[in-house]
Nucleic acid binder design. Structure first.
Lengths: 109, 109
DNA sequence: TTGTTTCATTGCAATAATACGATTAATAAT
DNA sequence: ATTATTAATCGTATTATTGCAATGAAACAA
């Protein structure tokens, strides 16, 4: 039905999926990479950097912001975006913990 | 338009996004966790373990298989699924490399 | 063969996501 | 005050995703 049954899963599974989901689009990957690369605040030249229209970029930024991975500060007419390092670390820890499930596993098939 | 413009992004960005995307659903997270936990092959008791209908589970398994994260072996009438550890490691490495972008970054906002 | 089990596939309905043009809101500049 | 700049929001079209009932295919059992 296009409606994910979140109630069936535990909060950890839903959280991991939510973080993975927001990373699951190349535009958002590119935005994050650029914010890390610039290493300082970046405004709307993300629109030039990435080849998407301004409303589209704005929408992706909104989702990244909603998950807490970036934060924006108004500077005049423009808005400066940068990585929210604290939340990024938290996300990283949770994803990494999931990805590291393999250590004790043995192959079978 | 509902159509991701993959041509705009490089292959690394698209690959990271593809891996993150397939991890971006709690059912698939749960399936992978269970496959790791069982540590051996598992067939269709995933349907019982997770609370979704058989076609739905089958579809999620198909996507995980398509990304190479699991592999299935036919055993009589049932199919045994397990983690594809080699590909899992490759995926892990790529995601981890992306998540580790932060080391040199400094906060600004 | 006939029936059973197990899983994949198909087809459908409902919701979500992607992308952008047009508009709006807010600040800056003249 | 007027204009320009920047970015958010709205509305809409298009495609993708989720989920399941129904059906199909393959192996096994009797």
């Amino acid at each position: 039905m296009g409606l994910t049954k979140t109630a069936i899963f535990n909060s950890q599974q839903n959280e991991i999926a939510s973080f993975a989901k927001v990373l699951g689009h190349p535009a958002r990957v590119a935005i994050l990479q650029h914010l890390f690369k610039i290493n300082a605040c970046v405004c709307g030249d993300l629109v030039d950097e990435i080849g998407l229209a301004q409303p589209t970029i704005s929408q992706h930024l909104k989702e990244l912001k909603h998950m807490g991975l970036i934060k924006g500060t108004v500077e005049g007419t423009s808005v400066c975006y940068c990585i929210d390092l604290q939340n990024w670390e938290k996300m990283k820890e949770k994803i990494t913990m999931f990805l590291n499930l393999d250590i004790s596993a043995t192959n079978c098939c």
